[in-house]
Amino acid sequence: MSTLRLVPGTPDAVLSALTAVLDGSGTPFAPVPTDQAAAARVKQAAAPDQPLEDDCAVVLTTSGSSGEPKGVLLSREALLASAKATHDRLGGPGQWLLPMKPYYVGGLQILTRSVLAGLEPVILQESFTEAAASMTGVRRYTAMVPTQLARYLETDLDALRSFDAIVIGGAATPAPLKERAAAAGVTAIPAYGMTETGSGCVYAGEPLDGTSIALDDGRILIKGTTLFSGYRLRPELTAEVLQDGWFRTQDRGHLTGGRLEVVGRVDDVVISGGVNVTLPSVQSRLLEHPRVKDAVVLGVPDEEWGTRVVAFVVGEPGRDELRDFVAEALPRTWAPRDVVRLDALPMLASGKIDRQRLLEGVR
């Protein structure tokens, strides 16, 4: 078995280590964030002092937005398969702009695609518009999380329009945001995937080449060439989610005409006062309110209700107004019992909402 080395999670360091791994001259590595707390989680999950499992080029640590971070083993073949399938779907190789952290899978795969295309990636420093203007590739791509897209639609619209495609991942893209981007002439493509699938493997509802989708009682199963090899030093957990070549995700969805629609996580349906409440539906309804800029809805353990539905909202409306607004379209029993107004939702470096931080504030 080979050993694992830790490399700084900066774009230059990760690109250098990744290039060497992809051409066969380097050794497996794990990128480490500069933030001390995040670095400690990575080192714990990556366990560099322990023998490394076979079929691994990179170990990435999941963000831990809803649970314990895990070390995900990604092979050279999986990384390259994901990059090639992305280029095939988008219309061919191109130059990529990196506006994300390279120690999460979305950022790492921007670098992998750049290596595969043989073109230097452009690293976002401060100005998105200036970074976009410096690109020289015939085809121009980038990837970002929904929060970034929403921000750049307000501040850097012309730069967004200059890209042949912008892949949106890391979190579900709200329907109003999709509509805003389309109306503005921005080619934004929602992607579904995760670290375990080597980044996005379903674009605009359609699996990339080499990826198959199935459902098991509503749970999304994924099979294909981009899948991870397992969890670092967690064979029992690997066996739970990798079965007969299929990865059992924690997400629910349905297929219509071969197109996948993700409707939430397996644990996104909670029982509150004896009533099943679908949290993503409540969240989607809140985001339709004209004075709600952002929102997330979570279930909080409660002695009286079993689970209390709590909405964390960026916007002006108060609790009663939002409860009435939800009840206009959904059962009144689904309306959030508490509404916490915030200036902004706390985010992890991966671009996902820090659910654990929100829950800690209301328990």
Rank of each mutant, 00 (worst) to 15 (best):
A17M: 03
G306D: 07
S127T: 09
T27Y: 01
A37L: 06
S66C: 09
A143E: 05
D156H: 10
A47P: 02
Q148F: 00
A83Y: 09
L15D: 15
P317F: 13
A329V: 05
G258N: 02
P69G: 11
D251F: 03
L342A: 08
T333L: 06
R232W: 01
A335M: 07
K223I: 13
L119W: 15
D164Y: 09
A133C: 02
D23Y: 07
A175M: 08
L15G: 11
R291W: 14
P146S: 11
D302W: 14
V167S: 04
P69V: 06
P146L: 14
L287C: 08
S212C: 04
A188N: 05
P99H: 15
L98I: 11
P48D: 03
A327F: 15
L358S: 08
D209R: 08
K352A: 12
Q283S: 14
G318L: 06
T333C: 02
L60Y: 11
A311Y: 07
H289M: 12
R341E: 06
R252L: 15
T19D: 11
T129F: 11
Q44H: 10
A81H: 10
V14Y: 06
G224S: 15
L52M: 05
V263A: 01
A17L: 08
L345N: 04
T195I: 09
T238H: 08
G198V: 04
V21R: 09
E53I: 01
T173W: 14
T187E: 07
A183T: 12
K70N: 05
H254R: 15
G169Q: 00
E179F: 02
D164H: 14
S229P: 00
D251E: 05
E120H: 06
T256A: 09
V115D: 10
A335W: 14
L237F: 08
G170N: 02
V292N: 05
Q95E: 15
S25P: 00
H87Q: 13
W334Y: 10
A81T: 07
Q44R: 10
E261V: 15
K178V: 07
S82W: 10
W96R: 01
V32H: 00
G306P: 05
T307V: 06
G230R: 12
L79W: 12
G71K: 13
L6D: 01
F247T: 15
V270P: 02
R259N: 04
E126W: 12
P121A: 13
A329M: 06
A132S: 07
P174R: 06
A46M: 03
R161D: 05
E126Y: 15
R259P: 07
A37I: 07
R234Q: 15
L208H: 07
K223T: 04
D158V: 04
P235K: 13
T238A: 13
E120W: 03
P317L: 07
D343V: 10
E130T: 13
V297D: 10
D12P: 01
T225F: 00
L97V: 00
G258C: 08
R248L: 11
K223C: 15
Q283M: 12
V292H: 03
P146D: 10
A349L: 05
I123S: 02
A184K: 06
E321Q: 14
G257F: 13
V21T: 10
V59E: 09
